[in-house]
Amino acid sequence: MRKIAYVFGALAAAGAGTYLVVYLYRWQWQRAMICGVLLLVVEVMLLGLVTLGRLNRIEERLRDTDRRQRELDARQEDVLTRLREPAVTREETRFRWLDDSADRAYVFVPVLMVAGVVLSGLAWVVQKVASATARPAERRLAGRLAVLAAPAPAAPGDLDDLPELGAGASRGRTARVTTVAVFSVALLAALVVGLADLTQTRAGEANEHEATSVLVQIDLREPDVSSDGKALAAHQIWESCRHSTAAPLRNASLGDLGNGMYAGVVRPALTDHDVMRLRGCLEDATLDRAHLTVVGVSDVESGDDSR
C-alpha cells in the first residue's frame, strides 16, 4: 500500500511540475500558482510518508528489542529458579547404596581403587606406544597443512607497494556521484535559465502592421445570464488584461459580435511575445463564473478593422 502511495505521489508531483512549467511559459499565473501549491502538497505528503515509514521501522525494532529482552529475562528467571531449588531436591539424585545401613559390607571402594590403578597403567603403556609411532604421522600432517599456513611477516617497506583495499571501488563511487551531481546541477541551471528567458518581460521586434485583432468567446456557468451581463464580464476581463503586455494598451477597444463572441482591436500591433502574454492573461482570468477563450489572433492593416 505504501509503495502504491509512493508511485501515485511521484506521478502527481511529476504532473504538477510539468504543468507548472507549461503555465509559466503561457503566462497563466493563476494556474501556475495552483500547480505550484499542488506540487508543494504532494512533496509534503511524500515527506510525511517517508517519515512515517521510518518511524514504523523504528517502532518495529523497539518491539523486537523488547521481545528479545523479555525472552532473556524469562530464561534468566528460569535458570535462577533452578539454581534456587531446595537442597533436598538435589539430594534425591545421590547414590542409593549410600542410604543403606552400615551393617552390610561392601567391596565397591577397593575394587574401584584397584581398577583405577590398572587403567592408569594401561593408559601409560598406550601413551608410550603412541608417542613412539606418531612422529612420522605428525610430520606428514605438518607437510599437508603447510599450504594453509600464513605467510611470513613482510618488511615495513614491502607494504607500501600493496594496493589499498577498497580504493578502486571508492574512487569509482566518487566519480559516479560527482558525475550525477554535475549533471543534475547543469540540468537544473538550464531549466531555470530557459524558463527565465521564456517568462521575462522584454521588448520584442516591432510589428509592422497597423493593429492586432483578437477574437474571444466568453462562457458563463449560469446559462440564464443576459447579453448585458456577458458583455460586462467580457469587458471586465479585457480591461484587467490590458496591463499584461510590455507595451501599454491605450487604444484597445472591445466590440460585441453576438452569441458571446467579441473582437478586440489593439493599436499599435502586438509582437509575438505580447500576443502570448495577452492570450495567457485572457484565458487565465480570475473572474467568478466566467471563462474567456481566445479564438484567434491576427494582424490587420489600416482600415481593415472598420468593416
Rank of each mutant, 00 (worst) to 15 (best):
R68H: 09
R104Y: 08
L80H: 11
L112N: 15
R277K: 05
R176N: 02
D288S: 13
V7L: 15
R176Q: 06
H209E: 03
A290H: 02
G264F: 00
R57C: 14
Y25C: 03
T271H: 02
L287A: 05
P110S: 08
L39H: 02
D299L: 05
Y106H: 13
W27P: 07
A74T: 04
Q30T: 05
A146Y: 01
M1Q: 04
Q69H: 07
M276N: 07
K3W: 15
A169E: 12
I218D: 02
F95M: 03
T286M: 06
A102T: 06
A169C: 01
T201S: 11
A10G: 10
Q30I: 01
G157F: 08
T199I: 12
A12R: 07
R68I: 01
L187C: 07
S227N: 11
V193N: 08
G36F: 05
K3P: 13
R68W: 01
Y25G: 07
V111R: 09
G121Q: 09
R26Y: 11
D161F: 05
V214A: 04
E59R: 14
P153H: 08
V147I: 11
Q200T: 15
L254Q: 01
K3L: 07
R242D: 02
R94M: 10
R70P: 00
L282P: 00
L62V: 11
D274Y: 03
T293V: 03
G121F: 06
T133V: 15
S302H: 12
R2V: 15
R2H: 14
L49T: 00
L282R: 03
T179F: 11
S244A: 09
L55T: 02
A203H: 12
E239H: 11
R94P: 08
L270H: 00
L20A: 01
R31T: 00
G280T: 04
R221D: 15
D197W: 15
V265M: 02
H209V: 00
G255E: 05
L159G: 01
Y262D: 05
D160A: 11
D304I: 10
S244G: 03
